[in-house]
Nucleic acid binder design. Structure first.
Lengths: 346, 346
DNA sequence: CTGAAAGCGCTTACAG
DNA sequence: CTGAAAGCGCTTACAG
């Protein structure tokens, strides 16, 4: 009498209908709270469904109605806490609005963005959220627009793709940081930015440059290839190493993000430079670990979780049919001044 | 002639079949590389599908075949880098085997584990991966077993639920850590562990206690409620604060994980205790930030990403029909000794 | 070697 | 107020 695999064969609407003595249509209507069902029948159906432990098959439902309450989130590197925090904001807000999140990782070891997007589309997800975009992704995004798939860009923007975007004014953040460094009295300053194909990284470096320039300070590595690079700790370490070796008088190194800055701090430690006495170090993002016990990194506080949350909110509005013009939401940021850039005491 | 919404109405197998002049069955057979199709027809179908930009509808396919190449991953707090690293391992391994990951967050603000699991089941996911389980979840897991849904427990184990598990021997890790602390010559030692309903946290504390006891050292907060607590920085800070105030002679505080340990370091810094001169601090996990510039935390190196990767591999084997007895995989760990527990120099 | 047909579990007009 | 029927886009025996 019982099926071979799985002691309990799934209970479907047909099962509920049979037990309740009604049609599957009525079961569907009852479950979806549609009008035109006598209260008695409706509550009987609900009771039966409950008793049988009925659960609606999401695949069947979504296939039929052609819409999904699941959104796709594409992330380059979950192990990078920046994206983990961002994702947390997305997942939390999604949950509050009864949406789910399908996560895909883009990366050298994993899939390309195109493959990730294909996977999203194959699942007929209701909307998409992107991080880590570059201008090279413009065509892909335009294809989504052609298919009328709503999406939101997070943190980084893409030239020529007019769509909702949420982030901060990275340029102004950079200016504030450069300004602060100049005010500490340091004049020999280098910057080790993130990848140049990230518009956010580029804006940060531009802002830092401008903030310093206003006080007559030029980046000592302005023309060098190390001005931009991979946003990893390793890259920060290696690039800082060569800076420290080439220029013994260097007074400050600014990382394009906190992960790079940690690499810079490692390099300083390993080479006997004490921070901030010998050299100042600053970052960008204000990751949780940026202020931890003895580690006190000056940085720009980027509201990562909020970016994810508002991005998700924008996406929900689009999925709900909002057709207003694309929005660009600049979230406020703060400069977190800590001991890694304490004024020179000489 | 064009449909109102979405310029390009989706191309389905029917479209491909019509253009190629064959039946949908043949299209399906061609796409699924089944035998019994003349090479010519097959390649023509493939060419047409490609030309039309055909993409298989995953919902329809999964509904039909009743299996899914998507697995569910339940995580308490993505913003906690421990789970982010674990997730990275899962996602990466999944991608390598052509599986996808559906992520759900359990938490006070979000859904309960039951809701998360229901969501997984409603989507007919092929298998599930759990982190942060407690004994209270036993019933839920047994229900999954009754329905023959494969799952793997990560890091934490659950009493009475015999199923695949991947983690480290937390007890031995604790012993190694306690042993090390004793060897540094410190005798007044406290431990601020994670939640007592986590079998991993409990094992860690037990191990630490044993490692110290072998050298005749007892935890000074053995009987106190602060021996276990929330695994957050805030909790570490607050618990450390009261320890420092109550016992000026305290020589070492061990955190049940690195996040707690960071809170301990914060408390030391804010109260003028220098590490390791005045007091030693140790953690557990070896998070990336645990060694960062001036921050040099002694800790147990837990291979988080590998736990996720192997857990995913186990799950794939189960989904592929492996029916061997449940496995318990203990991954090797290391003790990372750093300056936060340097020997007392008196 | 290829196609017609049934069916996965839903939803939604449309009759009655 | 309720049900029979078609259909979402696939896959899979089963005929031919």
């Amino acid at each position: 009498m019982t099926s071979e695999l799985g002691s309990t064969s799934r209970v479907t609407m047909a099962t509920v209908a049979e037990v309740a003595g009604v049609s599957v249509a009525s079961v569907s209507n009852a479950l979806n709270e549609r009008v035109g069902l006598s209260p008695e029948v409706r509550s009987r159906i609900l009771a039966v469904a409950d008793g049988l432990g009925y659960r609606r098959n999401t695949l069947a439902q979504e296939l039929r109605i052609g819409r999904s309450r699941t959104v796709g989130l594409s992330v380059v590197d979950l192990a990078n806490p920046f994206y983990a925090d961002l994702s947390q904001g997305v997942v939390k807000t999604a949950g509050e609005h009864d949406y789910d999140v399908f996560l895909s990782s883009v990366g050298p070891e994993s899939e390309s963005l195109k493959e990730v997007v294909d996977g999203f589309l194959d699942r007929r997800l209701g909307g998409l959220l992107f991080t880590s975009l570059t201008n090279a992704d413009a065509e892909l995004l335009r294809r989504l627009q052609k298919h009328a798939i709503p999406f939101v860009k997070l943190v980084r923007d893409v030239q020529g793709v007019v769509a909702d975007w949420v982030g901060i004014d990275d340029y102004s953040g950079g200016v504030a940081l450069g300004d602060h460094i100049a005010a500490t009295g340091r004049k020999t300053v280098a910057c080790l930015g993130g990848p140049s194909d990230s518009n956010a990284s580029a804006a940060r470096v531009n802002g830092i440059r401008m903030g310093l320039a206003r006080k007559g300070i030029n980046l000592i590595n302005e023309a060098q290839p190390n001005l931009h690079g991979t946003p990893t700790r390793m890259s920060g370490y290696n690039r800082a190493l060569s800076l420290l070796q080439e220029n013994k008088r260097i007074e400050c190194i600014i990382g394009g993000n906190d992960v790079i800055a940690i690499g810079i701090l490692d390099a300083c430690r390993d080479n006997g430079f004490s921070v901030p006495e010998d050299i100042a170090v600053a970052g960008f993002d204000n990751m949780t670990f940026s202020s931890a016990g003895p580690l006190e990194l000056t940085t720009v506080d980027v509201p990562r979780e909020q970016i994810g949350a508002i991005g998700m909110k924008f996406l929900i509005e689009r999925m709900d049919g909002f057709t207003g013009p694309p929005r660009r939401k600049f979230l406020p940021f703060d400069l977190a001044i800590r001991s890694s850039t304490s004024p020179k005491s000489d």
